[in-house]
Write a protein that binds this DNA or RNA. Structure first.
Lengths: 244, 244
DNA sequence: GGCCGGCATTGATGCAGATCAATCCCGCCG
DNA sequence: CGGCGGGATTGATCTGCATCAATGCCGGCC
């Protein structure tokens, strides 16, 4: 519901990823510069496991990842889709609460956890910025709770596509009514996010296509001719309702 | 998954509610003392409406409230059950994202929003404390996402009762294997939280009772003879799995 | 005490989505 | 070019929960 504040490029980081230093002054930036390091990992790499200690906090520079939990009997639920500028790990928590797995090749900008926690203590701006980010994540998580608790399969898919489209629009990529999404996830990952099976997910994609709400140029692409019309399918009322 | 840090009584507030000043020094406490005021409201009062500006941030001293969203067609999903020490409103957000309604008579400890935001900026401890609280809420919201996305009606009810029991245990009330919960909500509110209908919720209460997992001395009380056994029903593996 | 109204329970039936089971599609590699 | 393999789609059937409809319970009030 709230716009992400503008996140400037920071030092030599690629644009828009270094979400922790929006208002830092030059000295603070220099400290962050010294503390960070980069890491590249291939698709499929586990970046964190539920319950395991996590020694680095990182933000995603390029690529995407899932954050999910798997129950003992194999049922899996994704709790977050991580895209560039999203954060992995929480200051003050030594263990990850969820499994994080790279969906594609990923570039991370990392901070050693202890160092980062010291920076947070010593730099009020960072704490405030982290609070804002965390509140955004909290809104997103609660909004998704409504989707999973009360929406039909069709509505869930529409809500997901709309939120993905809006997230993309927000981070650059000119808006306009029509747009083509590059899906960062497989049907299985989508199903895990939507709380559905692969089969139901696939059927709903087909259904939305037959109804002219989306087009599917390829498996990993979805073209949305009219975002507002799709948003209506997600139970989104005219003036910007549920979906951040 | 993480214990709430110890929250000391603060000034003349009743114990355990004033969640924002865990490590403040005397001066900071004095500032908070001056900034806060109390308010009592009867059951059913609306404390915030989705999209409406919220002029006060408050923490619950006594009583309980729901935080929920209602879709245009009437479907409702609760995104949070607010108990003593829980916080209403977010610093930096002028509008509430959800409806908040008092379930019982409620005592609030309030801070005027602008004042509070200034305190946050000027008092690093408060920002850090708020970040910790928000991270806890984020964990809880994501955990509930798993419940709503992948669990059966029976598992959802068990998960809810276990989380309620653990929350109560954490805030005082001696643990032990057996305990009696005072339910702060009606069957309808429970259903809204669980993402089910009233009827299904009621049937599952009956089912757990018939299976000896719970007893129901009265409509608003549930006795749990063996919390661990109930936790098993929620898909909680032995060593503390999902439920915070 | 008896009636009323709101919440809770229980029963009968319907349907959305899960499950089980074939294909289909397409990139890859011999 | 043809065969292989993994993801995606489509179809047939099953089932857990929603829906519709009584009925039960209890506290308040005349």
């Amino acid at each position: 519901m709230t716009m992400q504040p503008h996140i400037p490029a920071c030092g030599n980081c690629p644009i828009r990823h270094n979400a922790v230093c929006a208002e830092c002054d030059a000295d603070e930036l220099a400290v962050l510069e010294r503390a960070k390091s980069y890491r590249q990992v291939p698709a499929g790499t586990s970046l964190a496991s539920a319950g395991e200690p996590l020694h680095y906090l990182s933000s995603i520079v390029t690529g995407s990842a899932t954050m999910s939990r798997t129950l003992e009997d194999g049922r899996r639920q994704m709790v977050g889709l991580l895209l560039p500028s999203d954060f992995i790990g929480r200051p003050g928590r030594s263990a990850s609460a969820y499994d994080v797995v790279a969906l594609s090749d990923v570039t991370l900008c990392r901070f050693e956890r202890r160092t980062f926690e010291r920076l947070v203590r010593e730099t009020p701006h960072i704490a405030t910025r982290l609070l804002t980010m965390t509140l955004d994540e909290l809104d997103a998580a609660r909004d998704w709770t409504v989707v999973l608790g009360r929406m039909t399969a069709r509505e869930r898919l529409a809500a997901f596509l709309v939120s993905l489209a809006r997230r993309r629009a927000r981070s650059g990529a000119g808006a306009g009514r029509a747009l083509t999404l590059q899906l960062p996830l497989s049907r299985e990952a989508m199903a895990d996010h939507l709380g559905l099976t692969i089969e139901t997910t696939s059927r709903q994609v087909t259904a939305l296509r037959k109804d002219g709400l989306i087009e599917t140029p390829s498996l990993r692409e979805i073209r949305i001719p009219d975002l507002e019309r799709l948003a209506l399918e997600a139970g989104d009322d005219a003036d910007g309702g549920i979906l951040s």
